[in-house]
Computed example of a mutant assay.
Amino acid sequence: MAKLNPIELQKHLSGVDYPASKQDLLEAAQKNGGDDEIREALEGLPDQTFNKPTDVTAALSDRM
C-alpha cells in the first residue's frame, strides 16, 4: 500500500463533525469520493471516537 497523503485524507473527510466514530469517517470518505486506499486505511482504524482530525492522522501515521 502506498503512503497516504494527509491532505488528501482530510479532503475526503470534509464535513465530518467531531467527535466522530470510525463509521462516521468511513461514511464521509465514501460520500466525498474516497478511493479503495482511503477506505482500507480507515477500516484499519480502531473502533474508537476521534475528537479532531489530527487524532485520525495520528492513528493512521504508520500509513502516511
Rank of each mutant, 00 (worst) to 15 (best):
M1P: 07
M1Q: 12
M1E: 13
A2H: 12
A2K: 15
K3M: 11
K3C: 07
K3N: 11
L4F: 00
L4W: 00
N5F: 04
N5L: 05
P6M: 05
P6K: 07
I7T: 13
L9M: 14
L9T: 01
L9R: 03
Q10G: 00
Q10F: 02
K11M: 12
S14A: 14
G15N: 12
P19T: 10
A20V: 08
S21R: 14
K22W: 09
K22N: 07
K22R: 15
Q23Y: 08
D24S: 11
D24P: 05
L25E: 04
L25Q: 08
L26H: 09
L26Y: 03
L26T: 12
E27I: 03
E27T: 10
A28I: 04
A29F: 11
A29E: 11
Q30A: 14
Q30F: 01
N32I: 06
N32H: 06
G33L: 11
G33Y: 12
G33H: 10
G34C: 07
G34E: 07
G34N: 06
D35A: 12
D35E: 10
D35F: 09
D36A: 15
E37K: 13
I38S: 10
R39V: 11
R39F: 12
R39N: 05
A41Q: 10
A41P: 06
A41W: 08
L42E: 02
E43I: 04
G44Q: 06
L45M: 12
L45N: 09
P46R: 05
D47G: 01
D47M: 03
Q48V: 13
F50A: 04
N51V: 00
N51G: 09
K52F: 08
K52P: 02
P53Y: 01
P53L: 01
P53H: 02
T54E: 07
T54I: 06
D55L: 00
D55G: 01
D55Y: 00
V56K: 01
A58E: 15
A59C: 12
A59D: 08
L60K: 03
L60R: 03
L60T: 04
S61G: 00
S61Q: 09
D62V: 10
D62G: 04
R63S: 05
R63F: 02
